[in-house]
Design a protein around this nucleic acid. Structure first.
Length: 110
DNA sequence: GTAATGACCTTGG
DNA sequence: ACCAAGGCCATTA
């Protein structure tokens, strides 16, 4: 199966506070594989398969760009959800991304 | 079994 | 500063 890596990714993503965002690399790094950022994105691809809803809209790339919005129900869903949580989006990218950035390695630590 | 792809990141020219 | 290439892990063809 997709195994623990995916599960861990989902866990971390669910732990992201509302109105906050993080990056694939941060999650991958927290999981121990900083180079596996792609896998994190891939995991998000199957997030909709999970029984529990995964706030994948809070996960963006390092640029704060909503690269994965196209994988949502509609390319506008991601932005809509983020705006609902108070995150402002400009040109498909998070406003004040650095401030809203939520690093699991810093917040959750070990 | 090998080869190619992907919601990425880092480094080199 | 901008453009190009490589790497890494898992899934799919």
């Amino acid at each position: 199966m997709e195994k623990d890596f995916f599960e861990m990714v989902y866990q971390v993503v669910r732990l992201i506070p509302q109105g906050r965002v993080t990056s694939y690399g941060a999650i991958a790094k927290y999981l121990g594989s900083a180079k596996s950022s792609r896998i994190v994105g891939y995991a998000m691809n199957g997030s909709h398969q999970q029984k529990i809803l995964v706030p994948a809209q809070r996960v963006v790339n390092r640029n704060g760009l909503l690269t994965g919005k196209i994988h949502f129900a509609t390319p506008n869903t991601m932005q809509e959800l983020l705006e609902q949580e108070g995150v402002k989006i400009k040109n498909d990218k998070v406003v004040d991304f650095e401030e809203l950035f939520w690093d699991p390695s810093e917040e959750l630590k070990l």
